[in-house]
Amino acid sequence: MAPLLEARRLAKNYGTLRAVEEVSLSLEPGEILGLLGPNGAGKTTTVSMIAGLLAPDGGEVLLMGRPPSTNGAAKRALGLVPQDLALFDGLTAEANLRLFGALYGLGGPGLDRAVKEGLAFVGLSERASSRVKSFSGGMKRRLNLAAGLLHDPSVLLLDEPTVGVDPQSRNAIFDVLEDLRSRGKAILYTTHYMEEAERLCSRIVIMDHGRVLAEGTAPELASRLPHPTRLVAELRGGGDGEGWIGEVGKLPGFSRVSIEGGRLGATVENLAEGTSALLAFIASRGLELASLETQRPDLETVFLALTGRELRDA
């Protein structure tokens, strides 16, 4: 069975700049695919090509097995939530949703129902009659999301939907997305927040400079790292490591050593050997070990390993 959405070797150039190069991805029902990468990685360009807003210079997009440009039904199956707040500030929340619903062919009682449900879904029923310009940033984000959902698309393209929102609104958006996933919607979620990708996405595509660097679940991505394990030891009496922290970095197979608030962290090449070496060092220094835990690498680590740069600074 063909995936709901499939992008094959997409490419887009702006003059000599290769904005997107050979990007392929697919999306199944009930799946949230994270498109993770720094600003300028090519995520929005990729989403724009999938949404039919940009013509690819190479490759193709298939929605339900067919190109969306030649298939109106396929385009109706697509919901776009752009990064910008694509709303009419001078209109009420309800009027905005009615407009966007009408663009997808909704009308009459069907439109009434969709608008009502859409507002309720994002928690804005009470503000249906308020003009959007009176909304907070988080409320606008939620309405922006509702506008993309109104026609009940099978595939949802979310381009950085939580930019600039408060934690409460962000959590509300996450709840909505998890609800949508449980209803079988396929969601392509672009973000440069690794925490979001880790929390929401069943699979993650890491992009940078227009190319796909890696793809898989978060554990799969972490497992591909040459130094996948990190040890974290909580110490008492060690202070901030003055006089000895440098020695930890010299232990065989140890790297990325840090200490903060009595918690010593280090990435080790071999878990068993590294654990033994660390315990021996603690004992030799007369430090008291309160706890010892291992952590799998986070996406930040994965991105660092793939690009040599921190995700947020890229």
């Binding site: 724009s48 385009k75 109706r76 776009l80 752009p82 910008d84 694509a86 663009l103 997808y104 993309g148």
Partner: peptide
């Protein structure tokens, strides 16, 4: 906004 409008069928 124009992007959203153009995304419609």
């Amino acid at each position: 906004i124009w992007k959203r409008l153009l995304a419609a069928p």
